[in-house]
Design a protein around this nucleic acid. Structure first.
Lengths: 142, 142
DNA sequence: CTTGACGTTGACGTAAACGTCAACTACACG
DNA sequence: CGTGTAGTTGACGTTTACGTCAACGTCAAG
C-alpha cells in the first residue's frame, strides 16, 4: 500500500493551497478517495497533481490538461479513438516545441538586456575596469 | 523614414485584433503616434509588439512585460536604478530557465504518451509489424 | 449625398484559476 | 466540556486579457 496523503500534507509538499486541490477536483482532474468526509490522496493522485502543476507552468489550461490525462487513462477505445488521441498528443507536442523556441528567443533577449545593463553599471563605477568603446545593444530595432 | 503601419495592417501581419493593440496601448506598453485621430505604428512599435506577443506566449503578464520594456527604455538612472534593473532581469531569466526545464519534462511525458498510443495502434492493426513484447508505459506512477 | 471601409472611444461582458469568507463537522487533548 | 487543529461545503469576489457591442467620425468612390 503505497503512501497516502492528507490535503494539508500535499499543500505543504507541493506549495499549493487546499483550495487549489479542491478546485482541481471540481474540474474532474483528480478524484481522491474519502475517509469519512476527508479527502485521502494516493500516490497516483499526487503524481497527477504534479503533472497538472507542470502543465500549468508551461501554459496549458486545466481543460487541456484534463484532456491529456483522460487520454492517458482510457485508451482502450477503438482505433478511431486512439488515432484521435494520437493527433491530440502530436499537436500538444508541436505547441510545446514552439513554446521552447519562444522561450529561447526570450532568453536571448533578456540576456542581451542583462549584459547591456551590466555594461552601463561598469560605466557608472569605473574602478579599474577597461572601458568598452562604443558598445551598444538595440533589442527593439530588429 | 522606416515604414509605418496602420492598425489593420498590424492585425493582419501579427494575427491579433485591433482590440488587443488598443489594450496594449491602454496598458502603456506601446504609444503609437496619431495622424489626426488614427493610430500610426512605427517599426519600433511593431518590434515592441512582437516582444509583447512572445512574452505572452511564454507566460509573462502584461504588467511584467511592461516592466521589462521600461527597463530597456529608461536605463539612465543612477547606479541604484541599474542594479535594481539587473536584479529584475536576472530573476526573469531564472524563471525562463526553469520554464525551459518544465517544457522539456512535459515534452518527454507527451512523447512517452505518444509512443504508447502508437504501440496500441500497432496492436490494433497487426498487419506485419513485429510484436513488442511486454512493453508498458506508466507515466503516472513515478 | 450616401454608402462602405476603416477608424475611434467608452463601457459592459467573459473565461480561467483560483482567493476569501462564512458556517459547519469531527476529533483528540488537557 | 471547552478549545484547538484539520477538514468540509457553498458561494461570492478578483485578476488578467481581452471580446463584444454601441455610437460616432472621416474620407474616397459611385
Amino acid at each position: 500500500m503505497s503512501r497516502q496523503y492528507s490535503i494539508r500534507e500535499l499543500t505543504k509538499d507541493l506549495g499549493i493551497t487546499a483550495r487549489t486541490l479542491r478546485h482541481y477536483e471540481d474540474e474532474g482532474l483528480i478524484a481522491p478517495t474519502r475517509n469519512g468526509q476527508q479527502r485521502v490522496y494516493s500516490a497516483r493522485d499526487r503524481a497527477r497533481i504534479t503533472l497538472i502543476l507542470r502543465g500549468r507552468r508551461v501554459g496549458f489550461t486545466l481543460a487541456e490538461i484534463g484532456e491529456i490525462l483522460d487520454l492517458y487513462d482510457s485508451n482502450d477505445g477503438g482505433a478511431a479513438q486512439l488515432a484521435h488521441a494520437r493527433k491530440k498528443f502530436a499537436s500538444r507536442i508541436a505547441a510545446l516545441e514552439q513554446q521552447k523556441r519562444d522561450v529561447d528567443e526570450s532568453l536571448a533577449e533578456l540576456r542581451l538586456g542583462l549584459t547591456m545593463i551590466e555594461n552601463k553599471l561598469a560605466d557608472h563605477e569605473p574602478r579599474e575596469s577597461p572601458r568598452l568603446t562604443g558598445y551598444g545593444v538595440m533589442p527593439l530595432e530588429d
